[in-house]
Nucleic acid binder design. Structure first.
Lengths: 148, 148
DNA sequence: TCCCAATTTGTAATCATTACATATTTACAA
DNA sequence: TTGTAAATATGTAATGATTACAAATTGGGA
């Protein structure tokens, strides 16, 4: 369900993807930061310890990891692309107030439609938006609504 | 279920949104072209009959229509923003082969997760990807897979 | 008709992403 | 160990969608 760093390394080896230093560090970052980071977040955090890191490299590596099936692209909003270690059976909830993205479990098998009976479905995404409990309680306390 | 041009005009009037010529034409375009067009498609098609139209205007109008709740943004892919007349209870399927986006009916009430019991959900999106029946039959006929 | 406010327009700026050429590293054979 | 070719990483420039902004146009009410 929640793949470990070692399992992911093994999966990449099986696909003949060379585990370079930068690739391992990006993979490690994604395992340790399951907060659906943007390229900018990944790059700026890793650059602190890999001073020569290039943002192009981060883009290249993410592309390879996505193609290898170990990382998933999340496009809840059109203006920010996020990346997530591939995990089965979950949806994403984005809080309109604080911007946090939460994972939630959902039974994808229930997600069927007669309209798609002749379609080959390879990828299911569920994105919700709204207000998270923490922001809800803040709003109730202050009695004012924070902007979107 | 499928709002008419007249119903949408009425909804905008109720929200005190002035129905300028350009706004009406964009709205009309979206009602007549329920193919989830991009800004580029909307702009280039409308420019044929509104020669003075500016792309900035299309962006402005779409923003207003989205805020008014009559149009929905679809971000299946991170690199292309699409727009859709607001319709309840449907998901979107994008064919990886031909790029067409299909609507399908789905019961959003079944889309629940215990993980979200304290969340206020305002927006549910379901995006599938795969191969549509037409492309599936093409692949079977020619026995070769078209690129992604 | 005139004037003010809303709307539209066009240009320039922004920003994420990609293209591409160069530099570096790695794997492997001699 | 050394040389070399291929793979990988890097940095800069280009691209392209979107936004900011200021000027032009339009529309409605006095």
């Amino acid at each position: 369900m929640k793949p470990s760093f070692e399992e992911l390394k093994e999966k990449l080896k099986q696909r003949n993807i060379h585990l370079s230093y930068q690739r391992l560090r990006v993979l490690e970052y994604l395992v340790q930061n399951r907060c659906h980071p943007t390229v900018e977040q990944i790059f700026s955090d890793l650059q602190k310890s890999i001073s020569t890191l290039s943002k192009t490299t981060v883009y290249n590596i993410l592309k390879i990891l996505v193609e290898a099936g170990v990382v998933r692209v999340i496009t809840i909003e059109d203006y920010e692309t996020r990346y997530d270690i591939e995990v089965e059976n979950h949806g994403h909830f984005k809080c309109k107030s604080c911007g946090t993205i939460y994972d939630f479990n959902i039974n994808f098998d229930l997600l069927n439609s007669a309209d798609l009976k002749n379609f080959k479905i390879s990828d299911k995404n569920v994105y919700f938006k709204g207000i998270c409990p923490r922001c809800l309680s803040n709003i109730n306390e202050t009695n004012e609504v924070k902007g979107d």
